[in-house]
């Protein structure tokens, strides 16, 4: 550890211009971060559409009639807790502790799946009450925005399974560790988008 600290302190003294190309970890992280920002731009467009259309209910139910805040609060807690367990999982990957990785990532998966189940339940309930996406511009925008977020969570769950299989078969190679790091970024970014969703869609309805 002291040797590592020494190397780090040494590298800090070299000016940026003389350090050579950045490490693959930094470059891969930057590339994935650019992808995440472009993904957030998609959500920005959907948020803009929702804000513009949220009043266009075509005589149907409005946001205040439809949404249940307790339900949303539980969804929010699930996603927040899964963000933290995912962070703990990423830390375990760095320390190459396979058992801890499986434990924390299984917990993350269960919390993510609970969130998704609650959201699908809400969608089914809305459709059953005749408030499906085809009813009004407001509901189309709502289902597109929240549905796109749900789709991202679904893809995240699939990616999580793939990463666990890679840890089991390939072990903690630098390549796998990098992918795990990118997965962590993806999962945390979804949580940031959800903060916007529950504020604008669910709490903004009054």
């Amino acid at each position: 550890m002291s040797a590592a600290e020494h190397t780090l302190a040494g590298s800090a003294e070299i000016p940026v211009s003389l350090r050579g190309p950045a490490s693959t970890r930094v470059v891969a992280g930057f590339g994935f971060w650019l992808f995440l920002l472009s993904d957030i731009l998609i959500f920005a467009a959907l948020f803009a559409a929702y804000s513009v259309l949220s009043g266009e209910t075509a005589g149907g139910p409005s946001a205040t009639d439809l949404f249940d805040r307790k339900h949303v609060f539980i969804e929010t807690l699930c996603l927040l807790a899964s963000s933290v367990t995912c962070g703990f999982g990423t830390l375990a990957v760095q320390r190459a502790q396979a058992a801890m990785v499986y434990f924390w990532m299984t917990l993350t998966f269960l919390l993510g799946a609970t969130f998704l189940a609650l959201e699908i339940g809400e969608f089914r309930d809305l459709v059953a009450r005749g408030a499906g996406p085809s009813h009004s511009a407001f509901l189309s925008a709502f289902f597109t925005l929240v549905g796109t977020h749900g789709l991202h969570v679904t893809l995240g769950l699939c990616w999580m399974i793939v990463m666990l299989i890679q840890v089991a078969t390939l072990g903690f190679r630098p390549m796998v560790v990098r992918r795990f790091f990118c997965f962590g970024l993806f999962w945390h970014a979804l949580d940031i988008v959800w903060v916007g969703v529950f504020t604008i869609v669910y709490l903004g309805a009054r």
Partner: peptide, 10 residues
């Protein structure tokens, strides 16, 4: 397989 610029073990 550590990349160029990566400090090994850090």
């Amino acid at each position: 397989q550590s990349a160029q610029g990566d400090t090994p073990g850090v």
